[in-house]
């Protein structure tokens, strides 16, 4: 194994992690501020991807598709928040789980109803197709590079939004003390709608960006949803920083595990059983990571309060 192959895999892990961060940021914000477990977050990811595919094939422009994904997911988020989610904030976590589970069924079938049972087409734009030559002879996909850059920009944007703006002050206040923020005269229901829409838009954007290199199909959101939950739990629920660290950790563990474990077992096992054991173990890797983190730190890496 060469150094450049290893570095390329690190980049792949980073790209996967950054994508997971976009998904988990909204999830962790919504939980931190409103105390809501939203299983339907994966559906917003799917809606973003479908909107991007539909608009991109209609207008021929990938970039308009990206804009559409942000808007469609945000609009869907606002509607869902006002019609349903809003009634769940004061409820038990279990009611939230049931209602948002029902939303998954509803959204998935609605997409199938509208777009049919077959996957949709969404491709990367011409300008980003092909590879980039990096030092050490690494050929890396331009599009994946863009995902890394966009992800980092959004992470920076989110941090400054939360630490420097008035909206951020309110969000942080909402996380620590909900009564106080209402007493300050902040229109709390507007704030909630806004936070929910922001999280939804990020999920939709992630769906569109990933849809271009994977597939746009019904049910695409569920595996990602599980991973996003893994991420926010590892990072500590409610913490944006935790979501970022957790996402990168999960991305690297999964990618490097898939790549290194089979070769590792080949050192002392015959190739076919090494492939068997290595592949089986690598599919369990992130769950092992999560269990280990939680046994070591029961409320995640950056979680201060075990809710």
């Amino acid at each position: 194994m060469s150094i450049s192959l290893f570095l390329e895999q690190v980049l792949n892990g980073l790209q996967f992690g950054v994508m997971l961060f976009l998904m988990s940021a909204g999830l962790t914000l919504v939980f931190g501020v409103m105390g809501l477990i939203n299983l339907a977050h994966g559906s917003l990811y799917m809606i973003g991807a479908f909107a991007a595919a539909a608009i991109a094939s209609w207008t021929g422009s990938f970039w308009l598709g990206l804009v559409a994904s942000l808007m469609a997911a945000a609009i869907a988020g606002v509607i869902v928040e006002i019609v349903i989610i809003r009634r769940l904030y004061k409820r038990d976590h279990l009611d939230q789980v049931l209602a948002t589970f029902a939303l998954i069924l509803l959204f998935s079938e609605a997409m199938r109803w509208i777009f049919g049972a077959f996957p949709l087409f969404l491709d990367v734009p011409e300008i980003l197709s092909g590879t980039l030559s990096l030092p050490l002879g690494i050929e890396y996909s331009k599009y994946r590079m863009m995902i890394i850059v966009v992800g980092i920009l959004i992470a920076v944007g989110l941090f400054s939004l939360i630490s420097k703006t008035r909206l951020g002050v309110r969000i942080r206040a909402g996380e620590s003390d909900r009564e106080m923020i209402a007493a300050l005269g902040v229109d709390i229901s507007k704030l909630y709608t806004l936070v929910f829409a922001l999280g939804a838009a990020l999920a939709g954007l992630a769906g569109a960006m990933v849809g271009a290199i994977q597939s746009v199909e019904v049910g695409m959101g569920e595996p990602v949803l599980i991973l996003a939950f893994v991420v926010i739990v590892i990072g500590g629920i409610g913490s944006i920083k935790g979501a970022l660290v957790g996402a990168i950790l999960v991305g690297l563990t999964d990618t490097l595990g898939r790549f290194l474990l089979p070769s590792f077992f080949k050192i002392f096992l015959n190739p076919s059983s090494a492939t068997d054991i290595g592949s089986a173990l690598s599919s369990m890797m992130i769950y092992i990571l999560m269990a280990a983190v939680l046994i070591w730190k029961p409320s995640g890496l950056f979680g201060n309060n075990a809710k």
């Binding site: 060469s2 192959l5 792949n12 996909s141 597939s215 068997d276």
Partner: peptide, 21 residues
């Protein structure tokens, strides 16, 4: 090379890098 991937996996960046190498 011979690789078994995770069932339902959608991203093959790691495998494609191995194919290249």
């Amino acid at each position: 090379g011979e690789i078994y991937t995770k069932l339902g996996q959608k991203d093959y960046a790691a495998e494609i890098a191995q194919i290249r190498a």
